[in-house]
């Protein structure tokens, strides 16, 4: 799926959150959105996902090719998992398949398939409260994969997790992107995640968020490893890019507090 973000501006009442955001996302590309706190990363993702109407501008789907059996082309993965506590793991996944005219057998087959893919089969009957944060996010990923999306929209999916789980899931995300070649927009404040997963990194300035630079990382995702000197160099370049913005944003937050 090819997406075009065209002249997106957004304001919350009197506060201007985003100004003139323009860039494209190519099929199979992973684009990370980074920037200081409050720069509008998650706002932009909500706009791309159709969960927030922009004040101005539009999101265009230029290439409507979707995977076979796709039920929801633009699919969200939430920072706080957004799992229904009254449904089991399998029930949470099944939820997003229930209103698409699939037979029960087809739904069960899809649920089983993504449970296997995400190593959740043994936990299919568990309720979210019985799972760790990492397992909950795996359920979030499984739920997203069940609809066979054309693009994943991931809103800081690792930020609510502990450091060890974050490393493990980061590897799993990298493997998923390398294996499926899925298009994704990945919001993060963690530069290490951005350089591990993204083909291009869109760095935003502090509020109102505008594009400071689009940074390309030319290493195939499958070949990237934790601690690779090239990745460290990219991470360092990105930090240099947003450091002043982050310091200024932090001061603004202090003044507000």
């Amino acid at each position: 799926m090819r997406l075009q973000i065209k002249g997106i501006c957004h304001s919350y009442d009197q506060v201007e959150a985003l100004r003139d955001i323009d860039f494209g996302i190519e099929p199979g590309e992973v684009v990370a959105l980074i920037g200081p706190s409050g720069c509008g990363k998650s706002t932009l993702l909500s706009i791309i996902g159709g969960l927030l109407a922009p004040t101005r501008g539009e999101i265009l789907i230029c290439d409507k090719a979707t995977p076979e059996g796709c039920l929801n082309p633009l699919t969200y993965v939430f920072q706080d998992f957004a799992l229904l506590p009254w449904r089991t793991v399998a029930g949470n996944i099944s939820l997003v398949l229930e209103d698409h005219g699939l037979s029960k057998a087809d739904r069960d087959a899809r649920v089983a398939e993504v449970l296997e893919q995400t190593n959740l089969w043994d936990f299919r009957d568990a309720y979210p409260k019985q799972l760790s944060g990492g397992m909950k996010q795996r359920v979030g990923i499984a739920r997203a994969l069940a609809v066979r999306p054309a693009a994943l929209l991931m809103d800081e999916p690792l930020s609510a997790l502990d450091a060890q789980t974050r490393i493990l899931l980061l590897d799993e995300f990298a493997a998923l992107f390398a294996r499926t070649g899925m298009t994704a927009v990945y919001v993060t404040h963690n530069l290490n995640e951005a350089v591990r997963l993204a083909n291009r990194v869109v760095a935003l300035r502090r509020r109102p968020g505008t594009i400071k630079e689009i940074h390309t990382i030319d290493i195939p995702i499958a070949e990237r490893r934790e601690g690779m000197p090239e990745l460290i160099a990219h991470e360092s370049a990105l930090w240099n890019l947003i450091r002043d913005e982050a310091i200024a944003a932090d001061k603004e937050l202090e003044n507000v507090a």
Partner: peptide, 18 residues
């Protein structure tokens, strides 16, 4: 009801009745 759960449902295009 947590708003993020409703947003989740909407993000997966669940019909309003669902």
């Amino acid at each position: 009801v947590q708003r993020n759960l409703i947003r989740m449902g909407q993000s997966f295009d669940l019909p309003m009745w669902s």
